[in-house]
């Protein structure tokens, strides 16, 4: 059963009782909340295609999004069972962005069964593209654009690299678009299903893009990385896809990892295998998303 099939009244009941339990990629999240007015509808809309998990199943993350304060000045806090709070209090109407950031925090600080890279992951014709990037590089915008032009979307935030074979496990969470990229994607893909806009968050205005149903239904099909492309958005710059030396790509990739430093030799060996299997590029792009997609399509079709 998928989350979309659950009536709102039942979502509310689960949130305030045993928790709403759903699967995304390799993780099961159990979400508790007493924010029952607008938040359940946002979850219902944005997480529509995620499969629900039976009430008594194991959950990787037990997260709580609860009101704090009094009736005149109520805020929200995010916490994880038996753990510290990763953020301070935040406004009630920013529950959804903080839930997403909170889940990112859960994964980044706990999922050491994978080599974790801060990267977008997409696939075309059975070959996977890794887009490792620092915040503000246009990674999420590219992910959204490629998904709307036929690429299978595996992940926006985390590349979860399996130790044994360096396959990348899908983790198709909502794509978090910020500021100008919200309008850019609305113009590029008017059919895109997006959640509300949240202005004045610590990252500016944020809106979430719902992944395609197919991405979520194929969450058990890992990707084999064929290309590593380091994107960089630069306003008005011309398109430039340039090969880089693998040693440079190696070092750059380690800087995009959440846990390379913790993993010792295993991390080094995994990055070695990833780099050996890939062609590596830097990719500078300006405002023209259609042109950027065309260039990456050409790469996937072997025309570059």
């Amino acid at each position: 059963m998928k989350l979309a099939e659950l009536p709102l009244i039942e979502i509310r009941r689960q949130l305030r009782s045993s928790g709403l339990c759903f699967q995304c990629g390799p993780f099961t999240t159990r979400l508790h909340s007493d924010l029952l007015e607008f938040f359940p509808a946002q979850i219902h809309h944005l997480h529509a295609h995620y499969p629900l998990v039976k009430d008594n199943s194991f959950s990787d993350f037990h997260v709580h999004l609860l009101r704090h304060g009094n009736r005149w000045r109520s805020q929200l806090r995010f916490w994880i069972e038996d753990e510290e709070m990763p953020f301070g209090l935040f406004p009630l109407d920013t529950a959804l962005p903080f839930l997403e950031w909170g889940l990112n925090w859960c994964v980044a600080t706990r999922a050491h069964q994978f080599l974790m890279l801060h990267a977008g992951v997409l696939e075309k014709s059975g070959q996977t593209l890794l887009l490792p990037a620092h915040p503000g590089s246009g990674k999420s915008t590219l992910c959204a654009a490629l998904m709307h032009r036929g690429w299978r979307f595996l992940s926006d935030e985390f590349a979860l690299v399996r130790w044994k074979d360096t396959a990348v496990l899908p983790f198709p969470r909502p794509i978090s678009l910020k500021n100008d990229s919200i309008a850019a994607i609305r113009a590029f893909a008017p059919e895109a299903v997006m959640g509300p806009e949240f202005p004045k968050t610590p990252k500016g205005t944020v809106s979430h893009l719902r992944p395609f149903r197919e991405s979520i239904e194929r969450s058990d099909e890992p990707g084999r990385v064929r290309w590593i492309v380091f994107p960089r958005f630069q306003t008005n710059s011309s398109l430039r896809l340039e090969p880089i030396k693998k040693a440079q790509a190696f070092l750059q990739l380690t800087t995009h990892s959440f846990n390379y430093g913790l993993c010792g030799l295993r991390g080094f060996e995994s990055v070695s295998r990833l780099i050996d299997a890939c062609d590596c590029y830097t990719f500078e792009y300006g405002g023209d998303l259609e042109q950027a997609v065309t260039q990456l399509n050409a790469l996937a079709e072997g025309l570059i």
Partner: peptide, 9 residues
């Protein structure tokens, strides 16, 4: 060691 051409990591 990891090697690619003349360069090593």
């Amino acid at each position: 060691w990891w090697k690619d051409g003349d360069e090593c990591v």
